[in-house]
Amino acid sequence: MTTIPFGRGPQKDPLLAQASGLPQEIAPARDLWPGIETRLAAPSRAMPRRIRWPLALAAGFLVASISALLTWGLLRDPGPNAGETMLAQNPATQPALLPVRYGPNSALGAVQLKARDDLLRQFRKQFAALPPETREIVAKNLAIIQHAADEIDAALGLDPASGLLNGLLFSTYQKELELYSRVVAAGDDRARRT
């Protein structure tokens, strides 16, 4: 194991070697004391402390105000892509980003599901930019659509040929698409305005 010493030996440093050769003290070219004595004896021209305090307080207040404003601004403005970053890092925690799952009795075709997934990709991009309360409402309504799809799927298990149930299933699927579409349209409008 190699040991690395802290610092370097003075004899190996040319600057330190030169410094050690300099005289230890230098006498001033003239006697400085008379001038110093005169300055000490003269009355001070400094402002009394009671006049400087208000300025110091004002300056302190301004510093505190600026600091508060900057902090508020940083907290208020997370940046244009902060929401998207959050979603990209942890998409699984966003319930609204999960598409509606249609059960084994729900005969939605591959074409319908592909159309849904294409729209879902656009929806995911726009969802993060919605106001938080609207995101919550969208998530809640996707959960409602999911519940409806589950109910219909369970009923289709009992009566697979029901025209009523198959019609309601397709209608529920359309509601899911409409919800995504509404969010996408709102995001497009917002992007155009900024």
């Binding site: 403005d77 155009r192 900024t194």
Partner: peptide
């Protein structure tokens, strides 16, 4: 149109 700064969309 009311156009807002990007950070205030």
């Amino acid at each position: 149109e009311v156009i807002k700064p990007h950070h205030d969309d």
